[in-house]
Design a protein around this nucleic acid. Structure first.
Lengths: 233, 233
DNA sequence: GTGACATATAAGTCTGACTTTTTGGGTCTG
DNA sequence: CAGACCCAAAAAGTCAGACTTATATGTCAC
């Protein structure tokens, strides 16, 4: 997927990051740079670079005379794509997927409303193309093809919103959608109602109908919440 | 505010980070580790650690035989609190503040709705206390006191939502609120209507009325958008 | 008990030598 | 002239070792 093993320090991170985010080292645990370097069979300089990165993600804190202490989850940079990936690969994947789906349900409707106002002709075309791709793959065990167009659809919406913060969530949404298809309960074929909603959102955006685009997208996200039994009855 | 100068590499970052996020080095610019180390009068190891951190924020990419190239803004980790702070300190502060306010307008109403369902008795008490604090500081040039309670109020809402992703936006919202008070147009005293809305949100959350909490918070964020002339007329 | 002081510890820093990857160019060949 | 191929330079990457600095903690006098 991303960039595995871009140097020695990267491989150390691929090992330490998931371990920490999985709670293998409980908050307050103290690690020593030297010991870690030995354990991973790398030099201290490499180990230090890895620790610096973990520190920039607020996963750990390095203090003199103390060592490298693991910080509580409340301090972690949960929006760091790397951290998201590590956590999605770990044990609390379901919990993580729920949090992100709720986040989606807040963001995407607003983004769709903005997209209806700001989308370029080109983006509208892309959107329609994605929706058609979803329709074409909505029947007959074509989950992978469906997923590709679904991810592209939502990414275009987020980018077309014109808000840089929304646009940056494209990767997160893609992860959630992929996670749902690959690891969670996903019925043989997608819900036809959901497919229709996507087509209608593309329409609404094309016509510049912000309120309708927002409302329709809200229905999509409500469906996503229901799939995970998040909505209270 | 945060942690200034936690070591040499930190001071290098405090200098390089703002420069890059300000666009001082346009995307594609190539930096050399050795030259940078000389320029900042630090050793290569320190410089390398700084570069690693910038790399983890996707601000730059380090490749052999090429150097450290600045990545386009679309790749940046815009949710990294450090990046947010750097950008808020730079030239495009107004633009940044707008993006974040739109983000707030999407998140906070949903968070308030969830808070109405999940808030503990203690959190309800905190919320009421914050609202009262806002009322007490709403008249007579007590902007600083008002700001403190305003920041606390929104932080409690985000945490009480029970969603970890929302909770992590507490710092961002605080930055936005502080920015509005300190650098942007802020009238002598806060809008009385906004103060009332906060009190009502606290009420709604206490009573577990999710729909009302969400709607009232939406009105608050609409006000914030209007202050920045974001809403189309 | 309290405060000043000594000490051990682990991170922080610097330096210099060496390795590895990559790219751009130059050369050879068809 | 085009394409394949090889070489050398360049820059990041890695390592080892010596030294510096901050600081938690224990000790001792008062």
């Amino acid at each position: 997927m991303s960039t595995p093993g871009r140097g020695l320090h990267g491989r150390v991170l691929d090992s330490l990051g998931p371990a920490i985010t999985a709670g293998e080292y409980p908050p307050g645990s103290v690690l020593r740079t030297d010991e870690l370097a030995q354990h991973f069979a790398v030099s201290r300089s490499v180990m230090r670079e890895a620790v610096r990165v973990l520190e920039s993600m607020h996963l750990v804190e390095s203090r003199r005379r103390v060592g490298v202490t693991v910080r509580p989850k409340a301090a972690w940079n949960l929006y760091d794509p790397q951290v998201i990936r590590w956590r999605l690969a770990g044990a609390d994947r379901p919990h993580q997927l729920r949090s992100l789906t709720v986040l989606r349900s807040a963001i995407e409707p607003v983004a769709a409303g903005l997209a209806a106002k700001h989308a370029t002709a080109e983006q509208c075309a892309e959107l329609t193309e994605c929706a058609l791709g979803m329709v074409a793959n909505s029947r007959g065990h074509k989950l992978e093809g469906y997923l590709v167009h679904d991810m592209a659809f939502h990414r275009v919406i987020l980018v077309a919103s014109g808000n840089e913060m929304f646009a940056r969530l494209g990767d997160v949404v893609a992860e959630v959608l992929a996670g749902r298809t690959h690891h969670e309960v996903m019925f043989e074929d997608p819900d036809p109602a959901a497919v229709t909603l996507h087509v209608q959102v593309a329409e609404a955006v094309r016509e510049g109908d912000a309120a309708r685009a927002e409302q329709l997208t809200r229905e999509i996200t409500v469906g996503a919440l229901q799939e995970l039994d998040i909505l209270a009855p």
